[in-house]
Amino acid sequence: MVTQISEWLDERLGWRSVWETIFLRKVPKVNWSYTLGSATLFAAVNQAVTGILLTIYYVPSPDQAYASVQYITTQVPAGWLIRGLHHYGASAMILLTVLHMVRVIFYGSYKYPREMTWFTGVGLLLIVFGFGFSGYLLPWDQKAFWATTVGTRIAEVTPLVGDAILRIMRGGKELTAITLARFFGVHVWFLPATLIILIGIHLYLVIRIGISSVPTREE
């Protein structure tokens, strides 16, 4: 029965060849540090799933953001878990991205023919930091508000365009409902869209070129 269904599906989807290229490919023997990339991917998936769940209740408005986060944390079943996973997942994501990067540098994995993989990786790092910064404001608690006030103020230091950057980030001179709304928009639409595209390219390249082998002393 199972075989029949899988045959039927394979005839139409060709999933078997996809499965073979992605999962049944040969890779060099590597050590545990090579799991950092997939761990980062797992953290990203975790962020996506829990993030989507959080938007079910979260309201990006100064009137309600805090109350809705409080509601998620204290009232909704497993809300504390979803929010906890998202909160600590964010830290894990940053930590893993950086460690993954350090591993890549250590083994020289960014070298020919994997330069493009590296470039997309640096892009991903920036996006992850962007996630961290924009997500920080959303709970609209004291820490969120003041850290973002200072964080956006820092951008003001930029020569010439500092003030403009500050205003664009905040959507005005002050940190207001507009700021919260746009941080939310960036956090759940702009950044995820870019993240998915870059992860797609990154993974495609990893599978196409194959993971680098651990270099020997002569290499």
Partner: peptide, 13 residues
């Protein structure tokens, strides 16, 4: 581990 809490979370209210 992710799915079950998610279901509880969604249908909770």
């Amino acid at each position: 581990g992710m799915g079950l809490p998610a279901i509880a979370y969604i249908i909770g209210p």
